[in-house]
Amino acid sequence: MTILEFFLWSLLKVVVVTVVLLLAVSYTVLLERKVVGRIQNRWGPSRVGPFGLLQTLVDGAKLFLKEDLTPIGVYKPLYLLAPIIALACSLISIAVVPFGAPDVGGPGINLFQIANVNIALLIILGVTSVSVYGVALAGWSSNNKYSLLGALRSSAQMISYELALGLSLVGVVLRAGTFNLRNIVEQQAAKGFLTWNVFGGLQILAFFIYLTAAYAETNRSPFDLPEAESELTGGYHTEYSSMKFAMFFMAEYGNMITVSCVATLLFLGGWTSPFANLHWFPATHNPVLLAFASLFWFVLKVFFFLFLYIWVRGTLPRFRYDQLMNFGWRVLMPLAILNIVGTSLWLAYR
């Protein structure tokens, strides 16, 4: 493959993946409103389009056309930069995520992944650690006490839970012996759901630590203290309006999708079928069907995690701040370290 071909393929994949991701973001918002509506015994948006399906487009248009206010007291360069950092960080991580079976489209093309790199998992962690700046700078540059408190809470929370998050992934990495997401998936593929890391890999503890830490990392309920409406009005994005607010909003949902993708890849076997071990389950050798099947399983698993996010948001109350910190440092961290020690001992014994 020449350099020009490589560029064109990459450009095409980047465009397609970004468009799909943004669509997924907007429909996750709609899904959330519908599901939370049903949990609270109401319909959710149902007027615009069939089942309210066009609601997100209308919302987008509304945010786009709203007046873009910039308060007088803000520190302008950073006030403008913060939403860009937040959104960019939330969109970058998807570049290393493999969505489907790799052997589609011929050698070197890699149709279902933008970049297959050896340190993919670390890149995702690195981008997450940089994304703190979006929130922190937004709160500080807004020159508003609610924003600053929200940003401080959020940064402290993200830094604390990042440790538990990173440590919970070490067990998986130990088992796979690589940071390459594709190899991690392939290592789980042998016998369907029996060899997934969450079941056969005995990483169920790590799975729950990862999910909990990831909810805190993405500032989602029950850890949504940075934007606790009853205490901080809007938290770090109080002073943002119009598209700048929408960028924070999209960043939050983009992060949710990334977290769901990573959970799928690391613990639920990525794009592989859960029934690969069952002989009666219809198997196909048609490459097109195989490609679609892998996409189907991946999307289904990611959808499960997104639904779980919304379910948790609809049912659990918010933590108190001291509870949050205690839980992160005194429960999740030691459990994650315990999981590493246990996994290492098991691997050494075997």
Partner: peptide, 21 residues
């Protein structure tokens, strides 16, 4: 590659966050 990503996680992600804090 490991050094590169460690540079981002440790320095850009952790140390500089404390600076800005």
């Amino acid at each position: 590659e490991f050094l590169a990503i460690a540079q981002i996680i440790v320095y850009a992600g952790a140390v500089m966050v404390l600076f800005t804090f």
